[in-house]
């Protein structure tokens, strides 16, 4: 698709989404779209690792969940102002990124994935056991949204998603982003060209961690509670599905995947209680026929020989 047409389509879509609150008064629809924005940001952050740097982390939801818990704990139990809570989230995400970066140094491939999963589960177990700090299985409720009403939240969520998308797009097309793609294509060779790959991996892990933390902050603002379920490995797998279903390595793919999964679960659960099974089958079918995900479907129609140019 020509760049100009792409731009027009994107702007039209953005306008349509922003106009929704004026046309449709349903708070329910608003909260669904806010949720899609939140998971889109989360999924984009994951795609930066998976689709562009080739890092397969099974602990990525740690940032998302810990951010939610940090906001809940500092604002509800310690009565900190919201900005201070955000500052703490940044500090914690940077610290966690540091840990994951060290893991990339020491392990490769399957072992890396296993270690990241272990780290993720460690945080999950801590959230259920450290009852005094985390509220255990019940979670930490009582978070008040900083947005005065749903409509403001809605617009903010959409605009934040747009900013995250544009930033990520620029990142992957920057000189550093090209190096990351080289890491994905041939980690050994890109190092031999003279690049300190550890430094580059650390940078993308930091950025992706902060973005996932941002998603976590928005999540706890919307739902008012942080629970162990968002630290469970099933959450990381959900994000993985969203990215792959939508189209890994495309940035807009994760957004599509997030939207599809949200809408499918809501629409399907309205018809039948077996919706999860149906969704699973649907996922397998899509993967059989469109291995590049939904984004790959559109690419196929617009350009017969899709070359990885950007």
């Amino acid at each position: 698709m020509k760049t100009k047409n792409k731009l027009v389509l994107a702007l039209a879509l953005l306008a349509a989404v922003l106009v929704v609150p004026a046309l449709i008064g349903s708070s329910y629809i608003h909260s669904i779209i806010i949720t899609i924005c939140i998971y889109s940001i989360f999924a984009i952050s994951y795609d930066l690792l998976l689709g562009y740097t080739g890092i397969v982390s099974f602990g990525h939801t740690v940032y998302f969940g810990v951010a939610a818990y940090v906001v809940a704990f500092t604002t509800v139990k310690l009565h900190w102002p919201f900005l201070a809570a955000v500052g703490m989230v940044i500090v914690v995400c940077v610290a966690i990124s540091f840990i994951f970066s060290l893991v990339t140094l020491r392990t490769k491939n399957v072992y890396f994935s296993m270690v990241t999963m272990a780290i993720g589960q460690l945080f999950y177990v801590m959230s259920t056991k450290l009852y005094a700090i985390t509220g255990g299985d019940d979670g930490l409720p009582g978070v008040k949204s900083i947005f005065p009403n749903k409509t403001v939240f809605y617009i903010a969520a959409v605009l934040i998603l747009v900013c995250v998308y544009l930033f990520s797009k620029r990142l992957v097309n920057s000189p550093a982003g090209r190096v990351l793609q080289g890491v994905k294509e041939n980690d050994a060779r890109i190092g031999m060209l003279g690049y300190n790959t550890f430094k580059f991996k650390s940078i993308v892990i930091q950025i992706s961690g902060l973005l996932a933390g941002l998603a976590g902050i928005l999540y706890v603002n919307l739902n008012g509670i942080a629970t162990p379920s968002i630290l469970n490995s099933s959450m990381t797998l959900q994000i993985l599905f969203m990215v792959i279903l939508g189209g890994v390595g495309t940035l807009h793919g994760p957004v599509i995947g997030a939207a599809i999964m949200q809408i499918a679960s809501i629409v399907l659960s309205g018809f039948t209680t077996r919706w999860m099974l149906i969704f699973g089958i649907g996922f397998v079918v899509v993967m059989l026929f469109f291995p590049k995900g939904v984004a790959g479907v559109f690419d196929r129609f617009s350009q017969p020989n899709q070359l990885r140019k950007e």
């Binding site: 349903s26 708070s27 909260s31 669904i32 949720t35 919307l222 509670i225 379920s229 679960s265 809501i266």
Partner: peptide, 12 residues
């Protein structure tokens, strides 16, 4: 059985 969905449905 999901908190996020529960909150959404309560909103509705």
């Amino acid at each position: 059985c999901d908190v996020g969905v529960g909150v959404q449905k309560a909103t509705k």
